[in-house]
Design a protein around this nucleic acid. Structure first.
Lengths: 351, 351
DNA sequence: CTGTTAGCGCTTTCAG
DNA sequence: CTGAAAGCGCTAACAG
């Protein structure tokens, strides 16, 4: 078992000191004669030297790594965000340590801790359960954290959010503009800021147009088993909630789902029961994940700039790491209506 | 800016040596008096000590990290695999450094290199472009690597594959069993072992049943722009290739897509053109990603044990890291027909 | 049971 | 321009 080659091995071979070798191989600005420099590089090549970053990182106290904590990478919503973050991390020479909490408070805690131990330089987090206190360790250690998508109340961290309320309002008023009055809202539990916001937007739109919401048109699912809350679960609740809706005496003419996965479930169940979308029932989703273009009919939904949010958060974090202080601590990204084919105008006589 | 607390700070406070502190805080089996041990833990708590893993890792020459290289996490096929790997990594106390190559040879090279520099203990890779030579550095350094899904020819590494040929055979013979004779194969470029295998299976099934394949029923897309080859691209080629198929004089009665994303494109185009699935055209996919259950009609496809493949690869790797040598270097996972609703029997008179 | 010492691989003063 | 030496935080012989 041949020992890994270090700068000392190279130093010996070229009759130089480890310091000099380090200086050239780490591209330091420190002056080294061209001749020496060349020789060192040549030998490094020959010996197939590759630096041990642990050494450097320990010395510099800089891991060149940022942590990213999200519920689950298998959720396409998050995978787009992560792709955005990764791109800017790579451009800055950083690596990403990705952590999937699977909605488990315990796991989230654990990751928060090990990321500190691994000496991450910064953290980007989209947490469902996080509060200010849990981040205190980071703040104390002056590790920069930026929170995305889910706002954390009055924590002293940078946040980049999304206006869910407005999105909910847009979706609902679009439906109203198309002539719908009986609009159901189908959602996973209203336990996160994002969903609460969307729901508020829904309510406000109805109110602004003088529509009194029927209680039974708000369909909220039970909490899912933590951990298995993948796309399948959301799809399933979309189906179940739709069944309930269809068994109502007063059926709605349009369904607003709090996210696209649930909307897929809604449409699927509608199809199963032979109800045509959008002919007999309009459906609108939320998030605009890639798949919305791929189903039939293509889903009308609310656009959420996921990739951009990731890039934005990444850039913000790296600015902070570079010491570029900003006094903008909070930015809110804006929703956008994406019209496709799952919503149809409702004629007066059908109301 | 308060300096991070180290074991020395604790040692000073309790009048012990750093060694002793290290012994208790790293849960070493080395004997330390209960009294001392308690005191140390208490002070560690008070000082909010958290170990710097870089120090330990450098000393132990063990990063407790494995690298995972895949094309893109935004592809649901890979995200499931990764979830499987992550689970076993976590159970073993390891972290995963995830790298998305976006089909770029350059990026792949770069990652291969930086992972070595970061001193990963092992590597799991599903590479499209990898060959034996590119792994030589790893082999030389005795870093264990296990390759998944895409077999690498006669490299001295562990491999866990999937029988694409058999999958292709199963899909095609299922179609044949349902009465189809005019079966098109719609695929991304046949430049990877997996797709080649699937295609071979398709051919063999046709031959076994005495069906001569029409050349125009093999529809291969052009290469996509590297990097943007996400789900949208595959969806798009599914659509485009279907258009070509439909413009043929001799139309097929069934379409076999080399993966589910492409199958979604196929179905979408069929829908657009008012062709009913499966009534007028049967469609079968490949991979059984989650979304296949969510579209309408639910897609008949070939099951690929993605999550299990991830777990399998992870377990194999950790066995190797633990020194459990195995003489099984190659294992091939098996396909499974998943019957849903996108294939219909073709009556004799329709042939 | 505890402490001393050396050193993992690298960078960085500080002197030459 | 080059080198010697110290040290990042931690662990592991070795000696007591």
């Amino acid at each position: 078992m041949d020992k890994p080659v270090t700068i000392y091995d190279i130093a010996k071979k070229v009759n130089a000191s480890a310091a000099t070798v380090s200086r050239v191989l780490s591209n330091s600005s420190y002056p080294v004669s061209l001749e020496m420099s060349k020789k060192i590089r040549k030998v490094a090549e020959e010996l197939k030297y590759s630096p041990n970053m642990l050494g450097r990182q320990l010395k510099k106290n800089n891991s060149m790594t940022i942590g990213v904590i999200i519920p689950s990478i298998s959720n396409p919503f998050y995978s787009e965000i992560v792709l955005g973050i990764e791109e800017v991390a790579r451009n800055n020479g950083y690596h990403v340590l990705l952590c999937n909490t699977h909605q488990s408070l315990e796991l989230e805690h654990e990751y928060l801790q090990t990321l500190i131990e691994k000496q991450v330089n910064g953290l980007i987090i989209s947490s469902v359960i996080l509060n200010k206190d849990m981040l205190s360790e980071y703040i104390r250690r002056k590790i920069n954290v930026v929170s995305i998508d889910q706002m954390i109340e009055d924590a002293d961290i940078y946040q980049i959010g999304f206006d869910y309320r407005k999105g909910g309002y847009m979706a609902t008023s679009h439906l109203i503009a198309k002539g719908h009055r009986k609009i159901a809202f189908v959602t996973a539990p209203l336990d996160r800021p994002s969903r609460k916001g969307t729901y508020r937007g829904y309510l406000e739109a109805l109110e602004d147009y003088g529509i009194k919401p029927l209680e039974s048109w708000l369909q909220v699912s039970e909490r899912g088993e933590e951990g298995i809350e993948g796309g399948t679960w959301e799809f399933a609740i979309g189906k179940k909630l739709t069944q309930r809706l269809l068994s109502l005496e007063q059926r709605p003419t349009a369904i607003f789902a709090c996210n696209d996965m649930i909307a897929f479930g809604v449409i699927n169940e509608l199809n199963n029961q032979g109800i045509e979308v959008p002919g007999e029932m309009s459906v609108i989703g939320f998030d605009n994940i890639e798949m919305t273009q791929m189903i039939y009919p293509p889903l009308t939904t609310i656009g959420h700039p996921k990739y951009e949010m990731g890039r934005f958060a990444g850039n913000m974090l790296f600015d902070l790491l570079k010491g570029v202080e900003s006094n903008i601590k909070e930015v809110v990204l804006q929703p956008k209506l994406i019209e496709r084919k799952s919503v149809e105008v409702l004629l007066d006589e059908e109301r």
